[in-house]
Design a protein around this nucleic acid. Structure first.
Length: 153
DNA sequence: GCCAACGTTGGC
DNA sequence: GCCAACGTTGGC
């Protein structure tokens, strides 16, 4: 099993929105970066665990834990001119974007802020904490994952 | 709102 | 293939 960190801007879609969604499930559309797409398409598997992170937020923090319920399938929002994720270069014949489905397992009582994460020596190599890190789909090692979960307990 | 870091685009 | 210009991300 692989572990991941997915970013979301709570102004657009927050963990509270996910908690209110039917079955606490959602599709994860809108990824428009090739490196992130490659992770989604090739390495995110059903049953994988996902840490949810609020970016552009106050506070910026890891806010919960999710589980992948469906592996990569075409992200057709790219073809929809009215979608905020519309990709004018995409077409039926050339649709490079994929999405997955996930379900909320746990909303952390106490969000783990960036500042707090930076203080954990086990997380020095966490992609999220790297200067200039922008990747919205990030792999997390099992060690890192366990260290993060331990901070919530 | 500022701005550093990063990814993409496009001229050559 | 290089690289400058531009747009986006995202912390602060």
């Amino acid at each position: 099993m692989n572990h991941w960190l997915f970013k979301t801007e709570p102004d657009l879609f927050s963990i509270d929105d996910l908690a209110r969604a039917p079955g606490r499930k959602t599709s994860w559309e809108g990824v428009r970066n090739y490196q992130a797409r490659n992770f989604l398409r090739d390495q995110v598997h059903r049953g994988d665990l996902v840490l949810l992170y609020h970016s552009n937020a106050n506070p910026t923090a890891i806010v919960g834990l999710c589980e992948i319920t469906r592996e990569a399938y075409p992200d057709r929002t790219a073809l929809d001119p009215s979608s905020r994720y519309h990709d004018p270069k995409a077409s039926e014949a050339n649709l490079p974007w994929v999405m997955v489905d996930l379900r909320l397992k746990e909303q952390f009582v106490r969000p783990l802020t960036l500042a707090e994460l930076r203080m954990n020596k086990l997380l020095v190599d966490l992609e999220l904490l790297r200067k200039g890190s922008r990747l919205s789909i990030q792999p997390v090692t099992e060690r890192q994952f366990k260290a993060i979960l331990a901070m919530t307990r």
